[in-house]
Design a protein around this nucleic acid. Structure first.
Lengths: 102, 102
DNA sequence: TTCCATGGTCATAAAAATCTGACTAATTGA
DNA sequence: TCAATTAGTCAGATTTTTATGACCATGGAA
């Protein structure tokens, strides 16, 4: 299983990356992230067609990819903030190129 | 239906594009395409884990996106060639940036 | 001490993507 | 005329992704 995954990565380096970046909600989440930190609940409000589970999964995967950072804010109204990382910001010009392309 | 699609495109321009470019076989097909024209049968041979149906679907979608051009070669051994288009070639540097990114 | 908001998890269901094996259509060489 | 090659199509099965609704954990306010 692990070997297979490695072989495939070797065959086509962007295959896994493209898969990680696509998915139904990630591009939209990424867009919101570029405009500032966001809460889980505000994401749900801004994306009324999405559901908790899918957002959770998407956020986790984007965290694992190093695009987002999760911060628990232990203050006034206890909540969680997701911030774009420097690595995530490096993706912005690439996405802009993609927009130009299409 | 059509309206919904338009709204979604407006919300996130790269969402549809990323979806079109990902998929299980497209990135690999694109790689092969950059190295020269390819036949349907040779693709099947080079990608033994893929199946006809999926390759057909992927090739059609890449054709519709304007990445590939399908040419029927009415000669010696009758066959079909898929060539990368100029528009497709414009994607190469973007994919290289993506490789750098990951 | 109970209630509410926030930010989740979990099992299951529905939908979408992918695979399989059988079949077809056009051309060509024997 | 018959078989082989190439490039598919098609119906149905399997796998993966996404959605749903119920439930849980934490902290603070009343």
């Amino acid at each position: 299983m692990t070997m297979e995954k490695c072989e495939k990565q070797a065959e086509c380096p962007i295959e896994n990356l493209l898969k990680s970046l696509s998915g139904k909600w990630k591009p939209l989440i990424f867009r919101y992230a570029t405009t500032g930190p966001m809460r889980f609940s505000s994401l749900l409000r801004q994306m009324p067609e999405a559901n908790k589970q899918s957002l959770t999964v998407a956020l986790r995967e984007m965290e694992e990819l190093g695009l987002l950072e999760r911060k628990v804010i232990r203050q006034k109204p206890l909540h969680v903030e997701y911030h774009i990382t420097d690595h995530g910001r490096a993706l912005i010009p690439i996405f802009e190129s993609l927009e130009q392309f299409s």
